[in-house]
Design a protein around this nucleic acid. Structure first.
Lengths: 151, 151
DNA sequence: CCCAATAAAGTTGTATACAATTAAATTGTG
DNA sequence: CACAATTTAATTGTATACAACTTTATTGGG
């Protein structure tokens, strides 16, 4: 047995050496940065991303949302109900397969897109990364995601 | 007025062009990856990071936790109460300033550190990034955090 | 010394995340 | 066709996040 198990100065357990915690904090900070901008649309960050999908493709199933957003029905069902109660989507059943819930964007949901158009530019100003860095961090996160997705 | 406001093909509102969403998803996936490892310690990721701070410095105030974890009392108070109810910390008042809550790690909390020693190595195996990439993503997130912290 | 301003935590209410379980519909196989 | 296995969502319970507000204690100016 090596001394590792009883080594008291194991640097891998030092807070400032954690790789993942900055990721966690940065994600929280990012959502916080979006909040004042999305407030005017009365949307949360996740609701905003959900609508963004529907601005590209006017209807989607819960399962498809799960695949795109990497979230399960435990998160999605209440999320979609809230969007429904705001009048931004409808939640119908698939006529051919009653298990499937088909989410469709409403006219009101589509109209929100206009109000959202300034948001990406506004956030880019705050975020303080140039385009190259932005692409890098995006690719790095995507690589990380792929690695973590491999069961 | 430019055509921008009415431009329908604004690429900045396309889901797959979002820089921040991979960050958001990667943070979620990271917490998910930790979960099975932390399950044996009966800790959540945030509880684990909180204890990690106390393994280095045996007592800390709520305010100090807030500065290190970038979280407010609305998150920290219930978190610390849960750690207290597990017997891992105590929550005393500062004798000299009764506003201040002093959190101290217990013997039981210290003992958990031994059980945590394998976690960093186990996670590094799953995470699929080499050391250089890990450092890069960490630095990028820290840069992002700094930018977002500038009010 | 008094008391307004400030500081530190705590509380309340809303919205994620997600494990574990359940419910309902469909599919596949004998 | 019967029915077990599978698929798709929904539900339940726990733990973050955080805005907005409240409570309690301390500080600082007059």
């Amino acid at each position: 047995m090596t001394g590792k198990a009883t080594m008291d100065s194991d640097k891998t357990l030092l807070f400032d050496n954690q790789v993942c915690f900055p990721l966690y904090s940065a994600a929280n900070a990012m959502v916080r940065a979006y909040r004042p901008l999305l407030r005017e649309l009365d949307l949360t960050y996740l609701q905003y991303m959900t609508l963004m999908l529907l601005w590209e493709q006017p209807q989607m199933t819960v399962k498809e949302f799960g695949a795109r957003l990497d979230l399960d029905s435990g998160t999605l069902t209440p999320l979609l109900k809230r969007l429904e109660s705001k009048g931004l989507v409808t939640r119908e059943r698939d006529k051919l397969d009653e298990r499937i819930r088909v989410i469709k964007i409403t006219a009101q949901g589509k109209a929100l897109r206009q109000k959202a158009e300034g948001i990406p530019a506004q956030l880019a100003c705050n975020i303080g990364l140039d385009k190259k860095e932005a692409v890098q961090i995006k690719q790095m996160c995507q690589r990380l995601l792929q690695s973590l997705a491999e069961d």
